[in-house]
Design a protein around this nucleic acid. Structure first.
Length: 162
DNA sequence: GCCAACGTTGGC
DNA sequence: GCCAACGTTGGC
C-alpha cells in the first residue's frame, strides 16, 4: 500500500494507557500475542501510520486518542525475556514468533469517545471493532478514520454535524 | 485436518 | 462476577 494506513490498537489502561505514551520519547507497543494481530504488526503497519488508542476492560471504554508509528514491526524483545509475562519459550532469535512496534503520542482526546457512542453511528456499523471486538490490532478505513476524527472535533460537535 | 475441550477476552 | 464469543491446544 502506497499511502499511509490507519489502525486501532486496544489496550487495558490498567496495564498500559494512553497516558503512558509520550509525544517526544517513543514507547514500545509490545505483548501482542494473537496471530492475526501479529501479522498486521509484522507485515502491514508502516512507519508514519496513525493509530487510534482504544481502552478496553475499564470504566471508560472507548477511543482515547491518536498515536503515530515511529518504528514498524520488529521482534518483540519481551518474548525472549524469562522474567516477562510475555515470554514465549517457542520463540527463537532466528524465528521470532511475536512482533512489536514503537509509537509516540500524537493527540490525547479531551474526552474518550465512548464505545456506546461509536455503536450509535450508522457510518461505523461495519467497523471491525464492533464486529471482531477481540482483535487487538485492526485496520481502520479512511472513511471510519475521518468520521471518528470528526466525532472528536469540538466544532463538529457544537455545530451538530454528527 | 478435524473438532472437542479448554482458556481468554471484554462488554455489561 | 457473569457469560457469550472467540482463539488455542492437543488427541485422534
Amino acid at each position: 500500500m502506497a499511502s499511509s494506513q490507519t489502525w486501532l490498537l486496544k489496550t487495558e489502561p490498567d496495564e498500559f494507557s494512553i497516558d503512558d505514551l509520550s509525544s517526544s520519547a517513543p514507547s514500545v507497543w509490545d505483548g501482542v500475542r494473537n496471530y492475526k494481530a501479529r501479522n498486521y504488526l509484522r507485515d502491514d503497519v508502516q512507519l508514519g501510520d496513525r493509530v487510534f488508542i482504544y481502552h478496553s476492560s475499564c470504566r471508560l471504554i472507548g477511543i482515547a486518542g491518536l498515536a503515530l508509528v515511529t518504528r514498524s514491526g520488529y521482534a518483540d524483545p519481551a518474548q525472549f525475556d524469562l522474567s516477562s509475562p510475555y515470554y514465549d519459550a517457542k520463540s527463537t532469535i532466528d524465528r521470532p514468533r511475536w512482533y512489536c512496534i514503537d509509537l509516540k503520542l500524537e493527540q490525547r482526546f479531551e474526552r474518550v469517545i465512548p464505545l456506546a457512542l461509536l455503536k450509535q453511528q450508522p457510518q461505523l456499523a461495519d467497523m471491525l471493532l464492533l464486529r471482531q471486538p477481540r482483535l487487538s490490532v485492526q485496520p481502520v478505513s479512511a472513511e471510519h478514520f475521518r468520521h471518528i476524527m470528526a466525532m472528536n472535533s469540538p466544532v463538529a460537535l457544537t455545530q451538530g454535524h454528527l
